[in-house]
Design a protein around this nucleic acid. Structure first.
Lengths: 187, 187
DNA sequence: CTATACATGTAACAAGTTACATGATTAA
DNA sequence: TTAATCATGTAACTTGTTACATGTATAG
């Protein structure tokens, strides 16, 4: 049910096509709720049939531009107010860290360094998005900005954590009998 | 495909039943890859039929204790080495933040405060897990410890971010024409 | 003796991914 | 004219969730 509210939210902020949504997702919501076009198009059709969005324009190549209706905005509101909050996180990259002990120390370190580069890329991307977009333009943009800031802090923390983890591993964490001193301070 | 490697990893660290896995998950891997028992039991049967785990014990009420075989450990290794890494995150709680602008300022602030309490709970839980478990006992435990440390930093950062976001909202972020000053320092 | 926790499973459904399928416009 | 990008959709499959179903041991 999450995807529909993500779409409603984006189409309430500004009219877009399914194609736009699929791409725009990558820069903002896609960081916390990924979606493929094959999932987006059918959902748009469903939302339109329920009157929560309407097609407000068209373009070349059969392009259809949708916008959220007042009923759609009310649906988001009802979702935030009434539904159970789901705090679960699904993050395969971290699940893999649990498994790192099956690799030799050198390989585990190399593994994390490749991850680190990826997190740097994510951080750069978010910082570029922060710089290139007018996040003060509307309430919807400003709310997105709050979420993007979360992403920025997330990847910053992630990089710091990788460096810490690499130190631990270099000190022998993954070896039988290796050390793992108690950590008291975070950061 | 992620679940199976999570199970293989846990059962390589120490022999357990499906029931144990379902509960133990909550404290460690469940934070990054949730799973219900209805998904765990069939997967265990499948892993056993493939020879990646074996039943090494039984208990009252039909309890079956499994352990990962050497082939199973090799399967984890191959997974880490060969498969595409998936860095995508799925996190509904954050998707909702994108939508917060549809609520009145007061309600949005109250919304975030309830989230904050939840993150405090998660942080406490992880800190308790950190204190009550012998994370130095084995390479598998020590690798888990690295991942748990990530969780600790994650929720700490999360709480700091909520406080920041609440300030922004109180300053008018969600109102039409409200401000959103450029953020230069993180933390 | 009764409620709770332990313990395992299946079935129906919903959500998400990958691959297939098609065609229009634009830039080189 | 040809490759890339734009643009929308469907189908088959996999994964994940919720609800159903059953039964045993233990503690009060």
């Amino acid at each position: 049910m999450s995807l529909r509210y993500g779409l409603l939210d984006l189409l309430a902020g500004e009219p877009m096509s399914g194609y736009d949504l699929a791409r725009y997702f990558t820069l903002s919501m896609g960081n916390v709720w990924p979606a493929q076009h094959s999932q987006i198009y059918p959902e748009l059709a469903k939302l339109a049939s329920e009157g929560l969005i309407t097609q407000t324009g068209e373009g070349p190549r059969g392009r259809k531009v949708y916008q959220t209706t007042p009923a759609g905005v009310e649906a988001i509101r009802a979702w935030l107010r009434a539904s159970e909050r789901d705090y679960s996180v699904r993050y395969e990259a971290l699940l893999r860290v649990f498994c790192l002990w099956v690799l030799p120390t050198d390989e585990a370190l190399a593994y994390l360094q490749r991850d680190r580069a990826e997190y740097e890329r994510h951080l750069d991307q978010l910082e570029k998005a922060l710089a290139n977009h007018d996040w003060a333009a509307s309430p919807a943009s400003r709310a997105s900005r709050l979420a993007i800031e979360f992403g920025r802090r997330f990847y910053k923390m992630h990089i710091e954590w990788v460096d810490w983890a690499a130190e631990q591993i270099a000190a022998g964490t993954l070896k039988p009998g290796g050390p793992l001193p108690p950590v008291t301070a975070v950061g």
